[in-house]
């Protein structure tokens, strides 16, 4: 491959991207940075371009805001639980579905159906599910622990509420991991598999030594993308627990939402968002380097 890209490729591969991202997102982003550096809220009554300068005041406030730090930690914990869970289940399912069988396309369509629903609706469904009058308690009732199940109030206990959010997220997003890995596994050349089988390798070995290394880049991509999204978890928390009880399940996205939209604390919210952005940026920089680095 020539070192320098030929003219048309060079233009095509950077100009449209530049136009799109810069045209749509740069100016609002700069506005956001500006808002974080001033002390402004619509309630202050001055135009946003006349706002008094604040410097790092908002950032200092964020660093001593325990609700913010707790929300950060909580959300990080959530991501650390949810992403590996979805990865493993998705990988397992993708592997199982490598074998052809009748109605496979139908089954796959079924398995990826959760992705087609708006997260808000999924949140509502699971909200109803975990109510005392919902199916979870009434099915548990019948099979697992008897009539006491009717007295389990999922949203009253911080841990149980946290679990419900994990359940909702897993239900909706495992298909994401599954789909990526399924397409990746399907792309493994059959000839390699056949060659390995001829050499007498067991199915387990084939999986570990042939398939997995080949889809590693895709796994990394999937994990990075999914983690970024999981960090922004909002709908499930908002609808199902409202961040409660108290603020014990409040995700960082919900906190920022409340700051920006309910309390109209725009400058502070912008500062908090930028801090979150910086943290995620740094963490994912190293993650990408490790996972995808070689390229």
């Amino acid at each position: 491959m020539p070192e320098k890209p030929p003219r048309p490729i060079k233009i095509l591969s950077s100009l449209p991207l530049n136009l799109l991202l810069n045209g749509v997102l740069i100016i609002p982003f700069i506005i956001m940075i500006y808002l974080a550096l001033v002390k402004w809220s619509p309630l202050v009554g001055v135009n946003w371009w006349n706002a008094p300068f604040g410097g790092v005041v908002n950032f200092q406030r964020a660093l001593s805001d325990s609700r913010f730090i707790e929300a950060l930690g909580r959300t990080a914990l959530f991501v650390a639980i949810v992403v590996p869970l979805e990865l493993l289940i998705g990988l397992l399912l993708a592997y199982i579905l490598q074998k052809p069988f009748r109605g496979k396309r139908f089954v796959i369509s079924l398995l990826i159906y959760p992705l087609m629903l708006p997260p808000v609706v999924v949140a509502t469904v699971f909200y109803l599910f975990f109510q005392p009058y919902g199916p979870v308690n009434n099915i548990f009732l019948q099979y697992v622990i008897g009539p006491r199940a009717l007295n389990i109030y999922w949203f009253l206990d911080p841990t149980l509420a946290f679990i419900t959010i994990i359940v909702a997220d897993t239900w909706q997003w495992t298909p994401f991991m599954f789909l990526i890995m399924y397409s990746g596994l399907s792309a493994v050349p059959k000839r390699l598999i056949e060659a390995a089988e001829v050499l007498g390798a067991s199915e387990w070995t084939i999986f570990w030594k042939v398939r997995l290394p080949l889809i590693k880049p895709l796994i990394s991509v999937a994990v990075i993308l999914r983690s970024l999204e999981a960090f922004k978890v909002f709908d499930y928390v908002y609808v199902m627990t409202g961040g409660g009880p108290g603020t014990s399940t409040e995700s960082i996205s919900l906190y920022i939402y409340r700051l920006a939209i309910l309390y109209s604390d725009i400058s502070y919210a912008a500062a908090v968002s930028l801090i979150v952005l910086a943290i995620i940026f740094i963490v994912s920089y190293f993650a990408v380097k490790i996972l995808v680095g070689r390229r």
Partner: peptide
Amino acid sequence: RGGPEYASKLTTAVNAVMAGTM
């Protein structure tokens, strides 16, 4: 001004006390 925010902070606290987390 700030009425919704004052009320919201109070609501969170009352709910936490009722739930037993504060």
